[in-house]
Design a protein around this nucleic acid. Structure first.
Lengths: 219, 219
DNA sequence: GTATCACAGATCGTATATTATCTGTAGCTT
DNA sequence: AAGCTACAGATAATATACGATCTGTGATAC
């Protein structure tokens, strides 16, 4: 067989995407044990590319790996949730501030609409769609950030949170309305051409508030 | 041969450290082409672990990789230098602010001594020792940062800068004295128990000023 | 009954061999 | 002379094979 599939994607990348997808949608839930040979068999490739994919996922923090033992999908305990949220608050806040001056009117209007949808969701709260809208909202705000490194760090943080948080870390009762209100405040700052530092801190505190709510709820 | 050396280090890790060391000390300078088989031969191992090491270094941004072509030590052009410095300013500033409340009197005194040595170096400027002292100074300040993710990002930024900056990006004339003065200001803030945000912005701006000096010098 | 040891199965780690792809060069065509 | 094609060498990508290490189980000694 050829070392590439029809799309010119290497088998390492194929395996990487295959595993990542399964972690993201929950088919491989936190703690699930990834066995090299088994995955290789399911994918119809040998162990070497799978091994490489696992190493890459390890570097991203999506899986943990122990020598001569194997890999398993990482689990996000409270302490790791805290450092992840803190880090994401830092980079996301900065990314939002850097992107703010270049954000278009259309994007801003779209963000307002998304936040309005989140507000309407509050009446009959649906976690899944609320989470999806929330991701869409923030992505709109920081996606034009000109610093590719920071943007990459933001994406990694989001992936880690979305893929690995179990039901334990999902939602704190009563936090959602505050979150929606904070979104409006953030949009006002951006629209008003506020000081980048104010925008950064607003976006950062928005996430840190979610973290605080979680810590207060679980103590 | 056994799959581990005497210290229980896998050959992937061995190759990783071997290559990384050579990039760090300049034996493999930016643009140097890394040939799998050649490195494997020099190390006395097969190509598979070397390949893995290269992939890990790629994830860290120390080397670039092109499918079916190979790897070479990354080159830091002006644009990449800018985003790297900006990102490092962000995470290093935050790390310093988070570490500030837990910093010991001994460490603070040591940092003052290091900065004094830097000041004395200014008379007969020696780039190599100045750079070393500068790294020591900042490491003292952020090393107790409790957020491991952020600390890791700081280390990656430093590695990338130290390993990949060619002579082009080394020093801007006249910047060093300002840098030393800014160090004192930062120490004063930390010692005085200032607001963490002030410490963060002081440390961040310290690095951004170096970036600005570079950009102004090369325009 | 508990602890220790030996063994077998499972799984990872690496070496070797094979295949696919790229790059550059020489020769041919126009 | 310029551009295209075919080929050869180099190199990466993967498969396969083998060896090393871990984990759990069951037997044995106390």
């Amino acid at each position: 067989m050829s070392p590439t599939d029809a799309d010119g994607v290497s088998k390492s990348q194929l395996a990487y995407g295959w595993i990542r997808e399964r972690i993201a949608d929950g088919r491989f839930s936190p703690g699930y044990r990834l066995v090299l040979g088994q995955i290789a068999g399911d994918l119809g490739v040998s162990a070497v590319p799978v091994r490489e994919a696992i190493r890459k996922l390890e570097a991203e923090g999506l899986i943990t790996f122990e020598r001569n033992v194997g890999a398993q999908v990482a689990m996000l305990n409270a302490a790791e949730y805290e450092v992840t949220m803190q880090t994401l608050g830092l980079v996301e806040g900065y990314a939002t501030a850097l992107a703010a001056p270049t954000i278009s009117v259309v994007t801003l209007r779209k963000a307002r609409a998304v936040n309005q949808a989140m507000r309407e969701n509050l009446a009959h709260f649906e976690p899944a769609s609320f989470t999806r809208l929330n991701a869409e909202f923030h992505t709109l705000l920081f996606e034009t950030c000109p610093n590719s490194h920071i943007l990459d760090l933001v994406h990694r943080g989001w992936t880690r949170l979305n893929a690995l948080r179990s039901s334990t870390f999902s939602f704190v009762p009563g936090r959602a309305p505050d979150s929606v209100a904070e979104h409006d405040a953030l949009l006002d700052l951006i629209e008003g051409g506020a000081d980048p530092l104010d925008i950064e801190l607003c976006a950062r505190n928005h996430r840190l508030s979610t973290l605080d709510a979680f810590l207060a709820h679980h103590s």
